[in-house]
């Protein structure tokens, strides 16, 4: 049974690589039962968007894509 501590590890990992089927399922079940972890998951998603939305970050160009790639 997945506990909150481990659930936050998977939520974080999800921002950096695709979760396996087993990880995804375990996380989904936990989130369906735990409102604190649902809030945490939304906050990790939000933190993942700072690169596009931080006031100091480059504004999205018209061709889309807020993230810039080295050339």
């Amino acid at each position: 049974m997945l506990m909150c501590r481990e659930a936050t590890r998977l939520m974080s990992l999800k921002q950096d690589r695709a979760l396996t089927f087993r990880e995804r399922t375990a996380l989904r079940i936990h989130l369906s039962m735990c409102s604190a972890c649902r809030a945490c998951a939304r906050q990790f998603d939000l933190l993942h968007k700072i690169g596009e939305h931080h006031p100091a970050a480059p504004k999205s160009s018209t061709d889309g894509g807020g993230r810039y790639e080295p050339r």
Partner: peptide, 10 residues
């Protein structure tokens, strides 16, 4: 300008 900005940040 937006292309310039993206490029400068790169």
């Amino acid at each position: 300008r937006s292309e310039f900005e993206t490029w400068v940040f790169g």
